[in-house]
């Protein structure tokens, strides 16, 4: 099949989706994050420690794949690191949490970081600034911000954190409050640089915590962060990778405008929540890394047909980040299949 020529730019397409209009075709947004470093032939460490490198890598990936959004992200510890957690930077892998801040400092000693100066937060802002100048009129620039629950767990010893949700819930709420303020401050700077914050909360998924725990400790802070962003009338994607089937019914209560899902049956998501919230997802990231282009092509066609049943709109995406070493031809197969099939306009 011959790929149809786009009528709209990525930005125009996204703009129509979020005001409940059908664009020419679905937005196609595989989560090309750190994988962009391989497209640009740079080390992963270079990607997440230099704003200019992150920008160059993302622009190289955009040029190679012609997908519909820039996705600025390295890993979920970025705010926790700026608040005092210690990370190691392997040369060719993502940062690794070594010393959580709350194992060495008390909560009262944890600062609300200044995104212009604290650790790697300026890397994001510099990357946004550079990319905005380059392609900001045509492509949405999504900047992934860890939600308070995920940041809270990265500030703590993860096991201890989970135990405290049962034994000392108020202490968790205290951590959530400061994590929320840090996330709001970071989002404020992202907005003023030209980026659209996307809220990510992988450690709140049902792969990690129970629905009750999610409802008690994660959802209220996701919602407050999203409500803050709604003051600016921004359209917010909430991305929860991992298992989300048990909490699907709770997701509209976050007030998110779009929900990005991972390990859950897309048909179930469409049936349960897509009349209230736009759906983003959810091709299996192991498959995009290890399957053949032909298999990916077939899978995407089936996934798109399912996703396009969403009355509020659908974005073709991977369930989580495209793995760093994914072959480029696999991502191209994903995008080509989506571009051939995901059309609303005849």
């Amino acid at each position: 099949m011959i790929e149809r020529r786009d009528i709209l730019t990525s930005r125009e397409r996204f703009g129509l989706l979020v005001i409940d209009e059908r664009p020419d075709r679905c937005n196609i947004m595989p989560l090309v994050t750190s994988h962009a470093s391989t497209v640009a032939n740079m080390s992963v460490k270079d990607y997440y420690t230099s704003g200019m490198s992150m920008a160059r890598a993302q622009l190289a990936a955009l040029e190679a794949y012609r997908h519909d959004a820039i996705s600025l992200f390295s890993e979920v510890g970025i705010i926790a690191e700026a608040m005092g957690s210690v990370f190691e930077y392997p040369d060719n892998d993502l940062p690794v949490l070594k010393i959580p801040a709350l194992t060495k400092d008390s909560l009262s000693e944890i600062p609300i970081p200044d995104p212009c100066t604290a650790k790697r937060l300026p890397v994001y802002l510099e990357a946004i600034d550079f990319i905005y100048t380059a392609v900001g009129d045509r492509v949405p620039i999504l900047a992934y911000v860890p939600a308070p629950f995920t940041t809270g767990m990265m500030l703590s010893d993860p096991n201890e954190f989970l135990i405290q949700t049962i034994k000392a819930p108020q202490s968790i709420h205290d951590i959530m409050e400061i994590s929320l303020q840090a996330a709001i401050t970071f989002c404020y700077h992202i907005i003023n640089a030209g980026g659209l914050p996307v809220i990510v909360d992988p450690l709140a998924s049902s792969s990690v915590v129970s629905p009750q725990c999610y409802k008690q400790f994660a959802l209220p802070y996701e919602r407050r962060l999203i409500d803050y962003l709604h003051r600016y009338d921004l359209d917010i994607i909430l991305h929860i990778c991992g298992e989300t089937a048990p909490i699907l019914d709770l997701l509209p209560a976050t007030n998110a405008d779009l929900i990005s899902v991972d390990k859950v049956d897309l048909g179930l998501v469409v049936n349960k929540v897509s009349d209230r919230i736009r759906v983003v997802g959810n091709y299996n990231t192991s498959k995009i890394a290890f399957s053949s282009p032909q298999v990916i092509n077939d899978d995407i066609r089936a996934m798109v047909a399912e996703g396009m049943r969403s009355p509020k709109g659908y974005i073709v995406a991977t369930g989580c980040e495209v793995p760093i070493m994914t072959p480029m031809e696999n991502i191209k197969a994903f995008i080509t299949a989506a571009k051939e099939t995901a059309w609303y306009w005849v």
Binding site: R11, G15, G136, R138, I191, N192, G194, Y232, D233, L234
Partner: peptide
């Protein structure tokens, strides 16, 4: 304050009191 002003008197999507940054995020460079 933000909710006070709406167009077509619609509170769900008619709010318009937003700063320039909002429109810059959506491409008004």
């Amino acid at each position: 304050d933000i909710g006070r002003f709406t167009y077509y008197h619609n509170e769900e999507w008619g709010r318009y009191l937003q700063p320039p940054a909002t429109f810059m995020v959506y491409g008004a460079r």
